[in-house]
Amino acid sequence: MNATVSNFHFGATTPVAAYLMACLGAALGLRCATRSLRRPHRRAGWLALGAVSIGCGIWTMHFIAMIGFNVQGALVNYDMSKTLLSLAVAIGVVAVGVFLVGYRGGSVPTLATAGTITGLGVAAMHYLGMAAVHTNGTLHYDTPTVILSVVIAVVAATAALWAAVSIHTLWASIGASAVMGVAVTGMHYTGMASVSVHLTGRSDVSQSSADLLSFLLAMLAGPLVVLLVAAVIVMFDPDMVLGDAEWEHAARAPREGGVGTPAPHQVPHDGRTSAPAEW
């Protein structure tokens, strides 16, 4: 018997919260990418933080959205090892893409390669997370819809990586992260639209629904803390405090023979600009 499947068991709460998490991860990742370009001597650290931010944002989006996943007449629970593995996959594949464009630039071949790898990895994270779902039934997927979700993931990943190397101002980054949030969340719900469940028995869903919610919230706690720490690092970074326009003006001044003392994060060091040890 095919069960009634819903992705909006708690109404608009879970999709809106999932979207906001996707936007937060993307915004932090873009700002970290900007820092990596401005500070080549700290590039690896900023790119790593950006990859972790985007990866945690995508993974958090997925499992917040999964809080609203409900199968009528079935108990839903998760395999912890596969759930954690999906987080590692999310961060790992995003890191591959971010480091590729961070060190090789935004050429078309680089973006195509990095975007494809990252997009396929994000899709793998999604379906690995779905493989962690256990219920008293069998999950089936509509192949054309799955393919569409993978295409959306690749396009979204490519656009995100392009933005990482092309968009540097604060407001442009916020706008780009909002669009990327739509794409990533859209990929999730497109993938979920392909799911159907064939029940092999019945269970008392209400008996363990609180346990399921507790498990998902516990799984989300770690990535949420990581996003909070990343947000604090980015917000208190001197570039953010100084502002984009002031940073560009200060960066041009030494090249134009300007007189005055450079800002602390621009004191010359071995022929390059330098930054305080806030990272």
Rank of each mutant, 00 (worst) to 15 (best):
T110E: 10
L75C: 00
M66A: 09
G57H: 10
N70V: 00
L87T: 10
I152K: 09
A65W: 04
M125K: 12
T83R: 06
V94P: 11
A88E: 06
I67G: 00
L148K: 04
M125A: 11
A88L: 15
L75R: 09
G73L: 01
S149T: 03
L84G: 10
G115R: 05
V98Q: 13
Y141M: 10
T145Y: 01
M66K: 01
A153D: 01
L100H: 04
T83M: 08
H126V: 01
L84E: 07
Q72D: 13
L100S: 13
I147G: 05
V108G: 02
G115P: 08
L148F: 10
A95Q: 09
L84W: 15
I64P: 00
G105C: 10
G137C: 03
H134G: 13
V122G: 07
A74T: 03
I117V: 15
Y127S: 03
I91Y: 07
R104V: 09
T113A: 15
Y141G: 03
I91K: 05
N70F: 12
R104S: 14
T138M: 14
K82F: 09
F69R: 07
L75P: 00
V98A: 12
F69P: 02
V94H: 10
Y103D: 05
G102E: 05
V89F: 05
A132H: 10
T110P: 06
L87R: 11
T135G: 06
I91M: 14
L120K: 08
L100M: 15
G121K: 07
L85N: 13
W59T: 06
M125D: 14
T60P: 00
T145H: 00
N77Y: 14
F99L: 14
